[in-house]
Nucleic acid binder design. Sequence first.
DNA 1: TATCTTAATGATAAATATTATCATTTGAAT
DNA 2: ATTCAAATGATAATATTTATCATTAAGATA
Lengths: 153, 153
Amino acid sequence: MEEKYLQSVKENLKKKGYKLTGPRLAILKYLLRKKGHHSIMDIYEKMRMKNDRIGIATIYRTVDLFLELGIVRVLTINNSKPCFEINWPGDHHHHLICKGCGRIIEFGSCNFIQIVGEIERVTRFSVKEHTLEAYGLCPKCAQKTEDYSTEKI
Amino acid sequence: MEEKYLQSVKENLKKKGYKLTGPRLAILKYLLRKKGHHSIMDIYEKMRMKNDRIGIATIYRTVDLFLELGIVRVLTINNSKPCFEINWPGDHHHHLICKGCGRIIEFGSCNFIQIVGEIERVTRFSVKEHTLEAYGLCPKCAQKTEDYSTEKI
DNA sequence: TATCTTAATGATAAATATTATCATTTGAAT
DNA sequence: ATTCAAATGATAATATTTATCATTAAGATA
Ligand SMILES: [Zn+2]
Ligand SMILES: [Zn+2]
Ligand SMILES: [Zn+2]
Ligand SMILES: [Zn+2]
Protein backbone atom coordinates (compact mmCIF):
# COMPACT_ATOMS: atom_id res chain seq x y z
CA MET A 1 0.00 0.00 0.00
CA GLU A 2 2.55 2.57 1.12
CA GLU A 3 5.05 1.22 -1.37
CA LYS A 4 2.57 1.68 -4.17
CA TYR A 5 1.78 5.19 -2.99
CA LEU A 6 5.47 6.08 -2.79
CA GLN A 7 5.80 4.95 -6.37
CA SER A 8 2.91 7.14 -7.48
CA VAL A 9 4.42 10.15 -5.72
CA LYS A 10 7.72 9.55 -7.45
CA GLU A 11 5.99 9.50 -10.81
CA ASN A 12 4.00 12.59 -9.87
CA LEU A 13 7.20 14.48 -9.07
CA LYS A 14 8.96 13.32 -12.20
CA LYS A 15 6.02 14.16 -14.44
CA LYS A 16 6.10 17.75 -13.21
CA GLY A 17 9.87 17.99 -13.63
CA TYR A 18 10.82 17.89 -9.97
CA LYS A 19 13.65 15.78 -8.60
CA LEU A 20 13.22 12.97 -6.17
CA THR A 21 15.71 14.10 -3.56
CA GLY A 22 16.77 12.64 -0.24
CA PRO A 23 15.07 15.31 1.87
CA ARG A 24 11.81 15.08 -0.08
CA LEU A 25 11.73 11.33 0.28
CA ALA A 26 12.61 11.53 3.97
CA ILE A 27 9.86 14.04 4.74
CA LEU A 28 7.33 12.02 2.77
CA LYS A 29 8.26 8.85 4.62
CA TYR A 30 8.11 10.66 7.92
CA LEU A 31 4.55 11.83 7.23
CA LEU A 32 3.53 8.39 6.00
CA ARG A 33 4.96 6.70 9.07
CA LYS A 34 3.64 9.09 11.72
CA LYS A 35 0.14 9.64 10.37
CA GLY A 36 -1.70 12.51 12.08
CA HIS A 37 -1.25 16.25 11.78
CA HIS A 38 2.14 17.94 11.92
CA SER A 39 3.26 21.54 12.02
CA ILE A 40 6.43 22.70 10.28
CA MET A 41 8.22 22.80 13.62
CA ASP A 42 7.01 19.31 14.51
CA ILE A 43 8.48 17.90 11.35
CA TYR A 44 11.72 19.83 11.69
CA GLU A 45 12.36 18.94 15.31
CA LYS A 46 11.15 15.34 15.33
CA MET A 47 13.17 14.47 12.24
CA ARG A 48 16.21 16.19 13.72
CA MET A 49 15.87 14.07 16.85
CA LYS A 50 16.02 11.00 14.66
CA ASN A 51 19.20 12.41 13.09
CA ASP A 52 17.51 13.38 9.86
CA ARG A 53 19.02 16.86 9.88
CA ILE A 54 17.11 18.68 7.20
CA GLY A 55 17.26 22.49 7.06
CA ILE A 56 14.16 24.38 8.14
CA ALA A 57 13.95 26.16 4.79
CA THR A 58 13.78 22.82 3.05
CA ILE A 59 10.92 21.73 5.28
CA TYR A 60 9.00 24.84 4.28
CA ARG A 61 9.84 24.39 0.61
CA THR A 62 8.98 20.71 0.56
CA VAL A 63 5.67 21.09 2.35
CA ASP A 64 4.71 23.87 -0.05
CA LEU A 65 5.60 21.64 -2.97
CA PHE A 66 3.65 18.73 -1.53
CA LEU A 67 0.65 21.00 -1.05
CA GLU A 68 0.87 22.17 -4.63
CA LEU A 69 1.06 18.59 -5.88
CA GLY A 70 -1.78 17.46 -3.63
CA ILE A 71 0.47 15.05 -1.73
CA VAL A 72 -0.43 16.67 1.58
CA ARG A 73 -3.26 18.85 2.75
CA VAL A 74 -3.33 21.54 5.38
CA LEU A 75 -5.45 21.77 8.50
CA THR A 76 -5.69 25.06 10.37
CA ILE A 77 -7.34 24.71 13.73
CA ASN A 78 -8.90 27.92 14.90
CA ASN A 79 -6.22 30.55 15.05
CA SER A 80 -3.09 28.45 15.43
CA LYS A 81 -0.24 27.17 13.27
CA PRO A 82 -1.13 25.12 10.20
CA CYS A 83 -0.66 21.37 10.34
CA PHE A 84 -0.13 19.01 7.46
CA GLU A 85 -1.21 15.48 6.76
CA ILE A 86 -0.86 12.98 3.94
CA ASN A 87 -3.63 13.37 1.42
CA TRP A 88 -4.29 9.66 0.84
CA PRO A 89 -6.14 9.13 -2.41
CA GLY A 90 -9.72 8.22 -1.70
CA ASP A 91 -9.48 9.09 1.97
CA HIS A 92 -12.02 11.85 2.38
CA HIS A 93 -12.23 12.79 6.03
CA HIS A 94 -12.85 15.73 8.33
CA HIS A 95 -11.86 16.71 11.83
CA LEU A 96 -13.60 16.98 15.12
CA ILE A 97 -11.62 19.07 17.57
CA CYS A 98 -12.17 19.25 21.31
CA LYS A 99 -12.27 22.84 22.51
CA GLY A 100 -11.31 21.63 25.96
CA CYS A 101 -8.17 19.57 25.45
CA GLY A 102 -7.40 20.06 21.77
CA ARG A 103 -7.72 16.40 20.88
CA ILE A 104 -8.45 15.79 17.21
CA ILE A 105 -10.37 12.85 15.85
CA GLU A 106 -11.36 12.20 12.30
CA PHE A 107 -14.71 11.33 10.82
CA GLY A 108 -15.50 10.10 7.35
CA SER A 109 -19.19 10.86 7.07
CA CYS A 110 -19.69 13.88 4.89
CA ASN A 111 -22.86 14.94 3.17
CA PHE A 112 -21.48 18.02 1.49
CA ILE A 113 -21.58 16.32 -1.90
CA GLN A 114 -25.35 16.38 -1.69
CA ILE A 115 -25.47 20.17 -1.94
CA VAL A 116 -22.55 20.78 -4.29
CA GLY A 117 -24.87 20.77 -7.28
CA GLU A 118 -27.07 23.46 -5.82
CA ILE A 119 -24.09 25.60 -4.83
CA GLU A 120 -22.64 25.31 -8.32
CA ARG A 121 -25.95 26.21 -9.88
CA VAL A 122 -26.51 29.23 -7.66
CA THR A 123 -22.95 30.57 -7.60
CA ARG A 124 -21.79 29.55 -11.07
CA PHE A 125 -18.54 28.37 -9.47
CA SER A 126 -17.22 24.92 -10.20
CA VAL A 127 -16.45 23.34 -6.86
CA LYS A 128 -13.37 21.13 -6.57
CA GLU A 129 -12.60 20.56 -2.89
CA HIS A 130 -13.79 21.45 0.55
CA THR A 131 -12.64 21.46 4.15
CA LEU A 132 -14.91 20.87 7.10
CA GLU A 133 -13.95 21.09 10.75
CA ALA A 134 -16.27 20.59 13.68
CA TYR A 135 -15.59 21.88 17.18
CA GLY A 136 -17.01 20.57 20.40
CA LEU A 137 -16.20 18.73 23.59
CA CYS A 138 -14.82 15.24 23.95
CA PRO A 139 -16.58 13.03 26.52
CA LYS A 140 -13.97 13.76 29.19
CA CYS A 141 -14.10 17.54 28.78
CA ALA A 142 -17.89 17.52 28.54
CA GLN A 143 -17.92 15.69 31.87
CA LYS A 144 -15.65 18.29 33.45
CA THR A 145 -17.82 21.16 32.24
CA GLU A 146 -20.84 19.48 33.69
CA ASP A 147 -19.08 19.04 37.01
CA TYR A 148 -18.32 22.74 37.20
CA SER A 149 -21.82 23.77 36.26
CA THR A 150 -23.34 21.75 39.07
CA GLU A 151 -20.69 22.75 41.57
CA LYS A 152 -21.98 24.60 44.60
CA ILE A 153 -20.37 27.99 45.08
CA MET B 1 -30.07 46.30 13.81
CA GLU B 2 -26.43 47.28 14.30
CA GLU B 3 -27.37 49.47 17.22
CA LYS B 4 -29.06 46.56 18.90
CA TYR B 5 -26.08 44.32 18.23
CA LEU B 6 -23.69 46.92 19.61
CA GLN B 7 -25.76 46.97 22.74
CA SER B 8 -25.60 43.21 23.10
CA VAL B 9 -21.83 43.25 22.66
CA LYS B 10 -21.50 45.88 25.36
CA GLU B 11 -23.50 43.72 27.72
CA ASN B 12 -21.48 40.69 26.73
CA LEU B 13 -18.24 42.48 27.60
CA LYS B 14 -19.57 43.81 30.86
CA LYS B 15 -20.95 40.45 31.92
CA LYS B 16 -17.50 38.89 31.52
CA GLY B 17 -15.83 41.74 33.39
CA TYR B 18 -14.20 43.43 30.42
CA LYS B 19 -14.24 47.16 29.88
CA LEU B 20 -15.88 48.87 26.97
CA THR B 21 -12.92 50.91 25.78
CA GLY B 22 -12.48 53.29 22.90
CA PRO B 23 -10.24 50.98 20.84
CA ARG B 24 -12.55 48.01 21.34
CA LEU B 25 -15.55 49.98 20.23
CA ALA B 26 -13.69 51.44 17.25
CA ILE B 27 -12.52 48.03 16.02
CA LEU B 28 -15.97 46.57 16.45
CA LYS B 29 -17.55 49.43 14.51
CA TYR B 30 -14.93 49.10 11.81
CA LEU B 31 -15.74 45.42 11.34
CA LEU B 32 -19.48 46.11 11.39
CA ARG B 33 -19.16 48.85 8.81
CA LYS B 34 -16.80 47.12 6.38
CA LYS B 35 -18.34 43.66 6.39
CA GLY B 36 -16.17 41.00 4.73
CA HIS B 37 -12.95 39.34 5.88
CA HIS B 38 -10.05 41.28 7.34
CA SER B 39 -6.54 40.34 8.39
CA ILE B 40 -4.86 41.95 11.39
CA MET B 41 -2.80 44.12 9.06
CA ASP B 42 -5.90 45.16 7.10
CA ILE B 43 -7.56 46.38 10.25
CA TYR B 44 -4.45 48.11 11.54
CA GLU B 45 -3.61 49.93 8.32
CA LYS B 46 -7.10 50.82 7.16
CA MET B 47 -8.05 52.24 10.55
CA ARG B 48 -4.80 54.16 10.70
CA MET B 49 -5.58 55.71 7.32
CA LYS B 50 -8.84 56.95 8.77
CA ASN B 51 -6.87 58.46 11.66
CA ASP B 52 -7.96 55.82 14.13
CA ARG B 53 -4.40 55.24 15.36
CA ILE B 54 -4.67 52.09 17.43
CA GLY B 55 -1.49 50.21 18.34
CA ILE B 56 -0.89 46.92 16.56
CA ALA B 57 -0.71 45.05 19.87
CA THR B 58 -4.17 46.26 20.73
CA ILE B 59 -5.49 45.01 17.41
CA TYR B 60 -4.11 41.55 18.21
CA ARG B 61 -5.43 41.64 21.75
CA THR B 62 -8.86 42.86 20.77
CA VAL B 63 -9.34 40.36 17.96
CA ASP B 64 -8.30 37.56 20.32
CA LEU B 65 -10.81 38.79 22.87
CA PHE B 66 -13.56 39.06 20.26
CA LEU B 67 -12.79 35.51 19.14
CA GLU B 68 -13.03 34.26 22.69
CA LEU B 69 -16.35 36.02 23.18
CA GLY B 70 -17.70 34.79 19.86
CA ILE B 71 -18.05 38.34 18.53
CA VAL B 72 -15.91 37.50 15.51
CA ARG B 73 -14.92 34.30 13.84
CA VAL B 74 -11.78 33.42 11.94
CA LEU B 75 -11.40 32.24 8.38
CA THR B 76 -8.10 30.73 7.28
CA ILE B 77 -7.90 30.25 3.56
CA ASN B 78 -5.52 27.51 2.62
CA ASN B 79 -2.13 28.38 3.99
CA SER B 80 -2.36 32.13 4.36
CA LYS B 81 -2.96 34.70 7.09
CA PRO B 82 -6.14 34.41 9.12
CA CYS B 83 -8.97 36.80 8.41
CA PHE B 84 -11.74 37.84 10.75
CA GLU B 85 -15.39 38.67 10.28
CA ILE B 86 -18.30 39.62 12.48
CA ASN B 87 -20.09 36.59 13.81
CA TRP B 88 -23.64 37.87 13.36
CA PRO B 89 -26.05 35.93 15.49
CA GLY B 90 -28.16 33.68 13.32
CA ASP B 91 -26.00 34.22 10.25
CA HIS B 92 -24.68 30.77 9.50
CA HIS B 93 -22.66 30.91 6.30
CA HIS B 94 -19.68 29.32 4.60
CA HIS B 95 -17.15 30.37 1.99
CA LEU B 96 -16.48 29.49 -1.59
CA ILE B 97 -13.00 30.51 -2.65
CA CYS B 98 -11.73 30.76 -6.20
CA LYS B 99 -8.37 29.05 -6.57
CA GLY B 100 -7.67 31.19 -9.60
CA CYS B 101 -8.20 34.77 -8.42
CA GLY B 102 -8.83 34.35 -4.70
CA ARG B 103 -12.29 35.86 -4.77
CA ILE B 104 -14.46 34.79 -1.84
CA ILE B 105 -18.21 34.48 -1.92
CA GLU B 106 -20.47 33.26 0.82
CA PHE B 107 -23.19 30.67 0.75
CA GLY B 108 -25.80 29.91 3.34
CA SER B 109 -26.89 26.44 2.38
CA CYS B 110 -25.45 23.95 4.80
CA ASN B 111 -26.59 20.42 5.42
CA PHE B 112 -24.05 19.56 8.11
CA ILE B 113 -26.74 19.68 10.75
CA GLN B 114 -28.27 16.59 9.21
CA ILE B 115 -25.28 14.44 10.19
CA VAL B 116 -24.38 16.02 13.52
CA GLY B 117 -26.48 13.49 15.36
CA GLU B 118 -24.70 10.56 13.81
CA ILE B 119 -21.28 12.10 14.47
CA GLU B 120 -22.18 12.70 18.09
CA ARG B 121 -23.46 9.17 18.49
CA VAL B 122 -20.40 7.58 16.90
CA THR B 123 -17.73 9.81 18.44
CA ARG B 124 -19.34 10.59 21.81
CA PHE B 125 -18.31 14.22 21.29
CA SER B 126 -20.83 16.97 21.71
CA VAL B 127 -20.57 19.14 18.62
CA LYS B 128 -20.94 22.91 18.99
CA GLU B 129 -19.72 24.61 15.82
CA HIS B 130 -18.25 23.89 12.48
CA THR B 131 -16.41 25.59 9.64
CA LEU B 132 -16.78 24.65 6.01
CA GLU B 133 -14.85 26.08 3.12
CA ALA B 134 -15.21 25.07 -0.50
CA TYR B 135 -12.57 25.69 -3.16
CA GLY B 136 -13.09 25.87 -6.87
CA LEU B 137 -13.07 28.20 -9.84
CA CYS B 138 -15.22 31.25 -10.40
CA PRO B 139 -16.85 31.52 -13.83
CA LYS B 140 -14.13 33.84 -15.15
CA CYS B 141 -11.23 31.65 -14.02
CA ALA B 142 -12.97 28.49 -15.20
CA GLN B 143 -13.26 30.12 -18.62
CA LYS B 144 -9.55 30.94 -18.68
CA THR B 145 -8.58 27.39 -17.76
CA GLU B 146 -10.74 26.08 -20.52
CA ASP B 147 -9.07 28.44 -22.99
CA TYR B 148 -5.65 27.11 -22.07
CA SER B 149 -6.68 23.51 -22.27
CA THR B 150 -7.96 23.86 -25.82
CA GLU B 151 -5.03 26.00 -26.92
CA LYS B 152 -2.91 24.51 -29.67
CA ILE B 153 0.74 24.13 -28.75
C1' DT C 1 30.93 4.68 -15.07
C1' DA C 2 32.61 9.43 -15.41
C1' DT C 3 31.07 13.88 -16.74
C1' DC C 4 27.93 17.54 -17.08
C1' DT C 5 23.97 20.54 -16.03
C1' DT C 6 21.00 22.51 -13.19
C1' DA C 7 17.60 22.03 -9.56
C1' DA C 8 17.77 21.50 -4.73
C1' DT C 9 19.81 22.04 -0.29
C1' DG C 10 21.61 24.09 4.01
C1' DA C 11 23.34 27.90 6.51
C1' DT C 12 22.12 32.05 7.62
C1' DA C 13 20.80 36.81 6.71
C1' DA C 14 16.76 39.50 6.09
C1' DA C 15 12.14 40.40 6.46
C1' DT C 16 7.59 39.69 8.78
C1' DA C 17 4.63 38.51 12.20
C1' DT C 18 3.48 37.88 16.99
C1' DT C 19 4.07 38.32 21.89
C1' DA C 20 5.95 40.41 26.20
C1' DT C 21 7.08 44.38 28.96
C1' DC C 22 6.04 48.42 31.30
C1' DA C 23 5.12 53.34 31.98
C1' DT C 24 0.95 55.86 31.15
C1' DT C 25 -3.90 56.34 30.28
C1' DT C 26 -8.66 55.55 30.95
C1' DG C 27 -13.18 53.14 32.19
C1' DA C 28 -16.08 52.67 35.73
C1' DA C 29 -16.99 51.97 40.57
C1' DT C 30 -17.29 54.55 44.80
C1' DA D 1 -13.71 64.02 42.21
C1' DT D 2 -11.02 60.19 43.70
C1' DT D 3 -9.44 55.67 43.34
C1' DC D 4 -7.88 51.45 41.28
C1' DA D 5 -7.35 47.99 38.20
C1' DA D 6 -7.67 46.97 33.51
C1' DA D 7 -6.33 48.46 29.00
C1' DT D 8 -3.40 50.86 25.86
C1' DG D 9 0.62 52.21 23.05
C1' DA D 10 5.41 52.19 22.22
C1' DT D 11 8.71 49.23 21.54
C1' DA D 12 11.76 45.41 22.85
C1' DA D 13 12.03 40.59 22.47
C1' DT D 14 10.67 36.27 20.10
C1' DA D 15 9.08 33.60 16.68
C1' DT D 16 8.04 32.60 12.05
C1' DT D 17 8.74 32.84 7.18
C1' DT D 18 11.25 34.13 3.11
C1' DA D 19 15.44 35.42 0.42
C1' DT D 20 20.22 34.77 -0.76
C1' DC D 21 23.94 32.23 -2.32
C1' DA D 22 27.83 29.00 -2.18
C1' DT D 23 27.78 24.02 -2.28
C1' DT D 24 25.72 19.51 -3.18
C1' DA D 25 23.65 15.93 -5.63
C1' DA D 26 19.86 14.04 -8.88
C1' DG D 27 19.34 12.72 -13.25
C1' DA D 28 20.66 13.17 -18.07
C1' DT D 29 24.28 12.21 -21.41
C1' DA D 30 27.95 10.09 -23.42
ZN1 LIG E 1 -6.87 14.42 9.27
ZN1 LIG F 1 -16.40 16.32 3.03
ZN1 LIG G 1 -17.79 35.14 5.68
ZN1 LIG H 1 -22.68 24.98 8.20
